[in-house]
Structures are given as C-alpha cells and as structure tokens.
C-alpha cells in the first residue's frame, strides 16, 4: 500500500488524498525510524539492562546485581576523580574558551583589511585532525627536546614538564582544548557581533557612552547575551566530552591526573571489558548530558522569547 502511494502516479491510486499523504509520510520516515530504533533506542534499553548485571564481554554466565554497579561507582576512587577532573577541565576551558573567543572576535570584528586573515588563522585548528595535531603537541611539550619548556624557562617559569607533572597535565590538556575550539567560538561571536545594529552604538553615544569599553559594556555585551549563553553551553558540552587528547597524550596519567569521564568509560568498557559496570557509568554520563541539554533548551527558549 505504502509503496503504491509513493511511487504510482496519482491517476493509478484511489485512496483519499489525506490518506495518501499519510502513507507517503510513513514510508519516507520508515528507514530513518528503523535506524533510530536499532542505533539509538534498542541500545539504550540494552544499556539500562546491562547496567543491572555483572556482564563481562565474552563471559558465559551473567547475574543480575541490581544497583550494585551504581553503588560501586560512587565509592570507586577512579570514577570519582574522573568526575572531578572532567569538571576541572570544563572549569579551565570554559572561561578561556568563551571570553578568549569573545575578545578575539571583538578585536577581529574591528579590523577591516586584515579581518579575513585573522579569521582564517584562528579557525585553522578547528579544521585540523586533533589526533594528528596532538602528536605535534607531544613533540612541542617534550621536557628536554621540545621548544616549549626552554621558552617558558627563559620567561622565568622554571623548567616545567607540562605533560608529566601531575599538577600541570590537566591544565596543559585544557590549553590544547582551548587552542582547538577558540576559532569556532570566535566565528559564533563574529556572527553575533555582525547582527548588532550600528544605530545602537550611535544611540549609546548620544546617551553619553564614550570610549570602547563603555560602548562594549552598554551595547555589545547585552546584545551578545544570547550568543554568549549559546557558546557557553556548547563549550561546556564539548569540553565535557574530552577524550582524544587524553588517549594520545597522557592516557589518564600521571597519577590519574587526567582521568576523565569518557576516558575511564572507554577503559572500563573496551579495555577491561567490564561491560555491566561500564554500562552503569554510561547511564550516569547520559544523565549529565541530558541535564546540560535541558539547560540549553531552556536558554534557547528564553532567547526566542526575548529576541
């Protein structure tokens, strides 16, 4: 039936037009719906069930353990430090990634002839393959062979080992994270800046706003409010998912200083093959992400109301 509704010319069909459209719609949506079912929904159900078992990949026997995996997780020092490190990472990346990008965007926006040059340069890391660039960073940060340590030493920082010192490794990864996403946020801010009507600045000048900083505080910052919200949320979500640099550069070390949620999840699920436990961890990660997304939806809704 659906096939006929979709593929046969109108004259060959007899059903009512509404019914025909409904059949066509169902037929069009069917493949995507099927994918949604097999790739998203079914795995979610399986995941929830797995999280209540002690299943290990390849194991012959499985037991229901109720909420034991969840209980273990919250007393597991590795999981706890992964949460702490992930939030610390977000706390480093967020201000630098948002305000840094805003500053760059404001400066770039004011340029005329060189604007596109700066845009290209700052956006370049976004387009690069992070894994490939991470091997370059590993190289740059080598404490005795790379150029960064002597450079920082000549600036009076002492000889720092940025990847192998437990106190510095997470910050170093955060700096690389900011390096990668700065240009992306900059572009979002540039779009926001271009949307501010020029006459607002003129009106502010009439109101007595003098100087760049005053103009920024009175006009630019309030007008960029929605963009800033949006950038903040997207930066938070992508920082929350930090994984590539951890795998390539530190593997969670030294002393667990760079264990992050997704990395520990990867270890448990695909390295230790503790499938049940990893499933429970995934459920918690999903809960975090859902909370962040709800927040995002709320804020976008509010933006729509005020705009």
């Amino acid at each position: 039936m659906a096939f006929a509704a979709v593929f046969l010319p109108r004259a060959a069909r007899s059903a009512s037009p509404d019914r025909r459209l409904a059949l066509a719609g169902a037929a069009f949506a069917a493949p995507a719906a099927l994918l949604l079912l097999t790739i998203l929904l079914a795995p979610l159900v399986v995941l929830l069930l797995l999280s209540l078992t002690d299943y290990r990949l390849g194991a012959v026997a499985v037991r229901w353990v109720g909420l034991a995996n969840y209980a273990e997780m919250f007393s597991d020092p590795v999981f706890r430090r992964a949460i702490r490190n992930t939030f610390l990472y977000v706390a480093f990346v967020l201000p630098a990634g948002v305000f840094g990008a805003l500053a760059v965007a404001a400066l770039v926006h004011a340029r005329t002839r060189t604007r596109s040059v700066y845009e290209v340069i700052y956006f370049l890391p976004v387009t690069s393959t992070l894994v490939a660039m991470a091997t370059v960073w590993q190289f740059l940060l080598h404490p005795t062979l790379g150029p960064v340590t002597p450079l920082l030493a000549s600036l009076g920082f002492g000889r720092l080992d940025l990847l192998n010192d437990p106190d510095l490794a997470l910050v170093t990864l955060a700096v690389i994270g900011v390096w990668q996403m700065l240009g992306f946020n900059m572009v979002l801010f540039l779009a926001g800046l271009s949307a501010i009507p020029r006459d607002l600045y003129e009106a502010a000048a009439l109101d007595g706003a003098a100087g760049a900083i005053d103009r920024f505080l009175r006009v630019t910052w309030p007008m960029l409010g929605p963009t800033t919200m949006f950038v903040t949320i997207t930066t938070t979500i992508s920082a929350f998912k930090v994984f590539d640099t951890v795998v390539v550069l530190t593997r969670g070390g030294p002393l667990g200083a760079t264990d992050t949620l997704l990395y520990v999840l990867y270890l448990e699920g695909f390295h230790y093959f503790r499938t049940g436990y990893a499933a429970a961890m995934t459920v918690i990660v999903l809960a975090f992400l859902c909370a962040l997304s709800l927040l995002q939806a709320r804020l976008i809704e509010r933006r729509v109301h005020y705009a």
Binding site: Q138, H142, P143, T144, L145, D161, N164, L249, T250, P254
Partner: peptide, 10 residues
Amino acid sequence: QLIGADQNRQ
C-alpha cells in the same frame, strides 16, 4: 625523569 614512553625513546 618520569616522562612518557614515546618521549623516553625519543
């Protein structure tokens, strides 16, 4: 020095 495996070989 306590550095990474690749860094050691380098």
